[in-house]
Design a protein around this nucleic acid. Structure first.
Lengths: 352, 352
DNA sequence: CTGTTAGCGCGTTCAG
DNA sequence: CTGAACGCGCTAACAG
């Protein structure tokens, strides 16, 4: 830029102004500057220097927990990202993808990202969240937060863990939604069952009967399980007898365990799955055994993702697009609709 | 960082080294530094200052021509991005999404992006490409380049347009692929037709008979049309009688024009579509009219995208994931397989 | 409307 | 192995 200034015979600031506040510079000088810029092939203010000086980068970082490949392949994920992207474009913000691989290098990537704020899409642990907050930048998390401890913003356990960034959590009221779908899925059922996703990779897929929810490591699942429990209590279904399976969210893998569930002495006559994938796995198992849906067994899913409509699945729909936009607005400090994001119970033919 | 140094009683450089080359600092000092870092809640070297000093940002920018929403919703696009992302993670590079909205602000966004290189996914015009190259950073374009002029790297039309970045183009041999699929799609046909995508929005969707390819504005389509023409020549099909329609890539919109095509005196008995979407539109039209595929009319698509398999569409498949990775490797200066990306002819039931 | 001054936070250099 | 000086390229704040 100094070169331009010299070449055009003006001060450096005049050049800077011609880029950033052209109206402050007289037309003649502006032309002079533009000519020099063209002649010397100057590509405009260096973004790094500008960020350093301005103290901001006009970039929003999106931390994706399960690897970038997943982020781009998964339907839910791309909807969320599209929502974020929309706001980014409107507010002239760049969008920086920050992959979470699950190992210790994640913290480095977060620290090294030249962004003004973070949006967390999925699967982030407490360490990583700490790393983000400790940069003093705003953070918005979709869905849920690893533990109650982290949710207590401002509370610090010693100066070492001073969290200076603001933390926003964006997500639907899972508990209420679970209560609502349980009401539909379990209507008229006498032997309901629940299918959850296991999150801790070291765990074995397993079936528990009437688990104590507070001890569950299922962060996403917890409020949902509570919602189901709420309904059971209200409908006089003894929770202690409800089998809950924690499975991999994979249609084929899950089908095996679900088969076990139906091999038990009193097979379920209603299955509430925490994901569409698990619900579809259930439908596979039932079709194979010649059981009618919903006559013999009613089934519900969650997400209203791909294939849910075709399978006639009763499910919960939430606008991830909206939540993406909301996260972006929050970290930008823009006002957002104070009401929590909406969910809808989509009733189809898989329930009575 | 100066604060840390003061607090720890060491020089600033000792702190810097503890972050970047810990082995250069004695263990005791390293501990001292770490303690101060913890105590003061220092979040590590500022990324902007680091980029400025180092002269690189360790970020790859991906320019997405059709808006970010599209980038995340479109299947092809997400595969490509996943390929880019894979390499980014391996090489500790950040991934910055740069949306192209089609207006003049695109150039600004490109100039303002703190990235070391650009990857262009789709729909970029010459101006934008110029903007990228003029930053002196490497650029990799998927598919094709707006014009021959731009492809001539290093050639400059005056200092004003000095292009200093290297330009890589990654794409399959469209012409060869087109020749191959024409052979299958047009086998035994006497009245073949071609469906292309119109790219210039101002154009009307239209049907031309045996168009002069060199005059076509269809950059993507050109090599493909040439490939079809190659086959026609070889199979003694008079190109001058082949109808070529340029349509919007939209199943419903396109169906109308395709209907027109079949209303002509001599309706096609083979349709080669440049996208699966257009092929599916053709199938819709044929189903409506009670025509058998492939008995009455054979149909081929392009991309092997969503729905192609279900529809039994003969089509061309290319690994966009691979091409994404390849683009990333190219801009990073890593060696790549010198053979051009592979394509496959997928034969299904829509052709004879 | 334009020029001057004074750093932004870091890493490279070179001398201890 | 450590420290001191310098400047990366730009812009906020002020003066003229």
């Amino acid at each position: 830029m100094a070169d331009i200034a010299r070449d055009a015979g003006v001060s450096v600031m005049t050049v800077s102004y011609s880029f950033n506040q052209p109206e402050r510079v007289s037309p003649e000088l502006r032309r002079l500057v533009r000519d020099s810029v063209e002649r010397l092939g100057y590509a405009g203010p260096d973004p790094a220097a500008r960020s350093l000086r301005r103290g901001r980068s006009d970039n929003i970082g999106v931390v994706v927990g399960e690897g970038l490949g997943y982020a781009f392949e998964d339907r839910q994920s791309t909807k969320f990202l599209a929502g974020v992207a929309e706001v980014c474009v409107e507010h002239r913000q760049g969008l920086v993808m920050i992959p979470g691989t699950g190992d210790a290098t994640d913290v480095d990537r977060v620290r090294e990202a030249a962004v003004d704020s973070f949006i967390v899409w999925t699967g982030v642990d407490l360490t990583l969240l700490d790393a983000m907050l400790s940069t003093g930048r705003p953070v918005a998390v979709q869905g849920w937060v690893p533990s109650r401890r982290a949710a207590a913003v401002g509370s610090s356990d010693g100066p070492a863990r001073a969290r200076r960034g603001s933390l926003h959590v964006v997500g639907v009221d899972d508990r209420a939604a679970a209560r609502a779908i349980a009401e539909v899925a379990f209507a008229g059922a006498s032997r309901p069952a629940v299918l959850g996703v296991r999150l801790v990779p070291s765990d074995e897929a397993r079936i528990e009967i009437g688990p104590v929810i507070s001890r569950s490591s299922q962060n996403v699942g917890k409020p949902r399980l509570q919602g189901v429990q709420d309904y059971c209590r209200q409908a006089d279904i003894p929770w202690r007898q409800v089998p809950v399976a924690f499975l991999d969210n994979d249609r084929h893998e899950a089908a095996l365990i679900i088969g076990d569930l139906f091999d038990r002495p009193s097979p379920p006559d209603a299955v509430l799955a925490m994901t569409d994938e698990l619900a579809l796995a259930t439908l596979d198992v039932l079709a194979e055994r010649g059981l009618e849906v919903p006559a013999d067994v009613s089934v519900s899913g969650w997400d209203d993702g791909e294939g849910a409509e075709a399978a006639g699945l009763t499910t919960i729909r939430q606008s991830l697009h909206e939540q993406g936009s909301r996260c972006a607005l929050l970290v930008l400090g823009e006002p957002v609709d104070p009401a929590p994001p909406a969910w809808t119970l989509v009733r189809r033919s898989s329930t009575r």
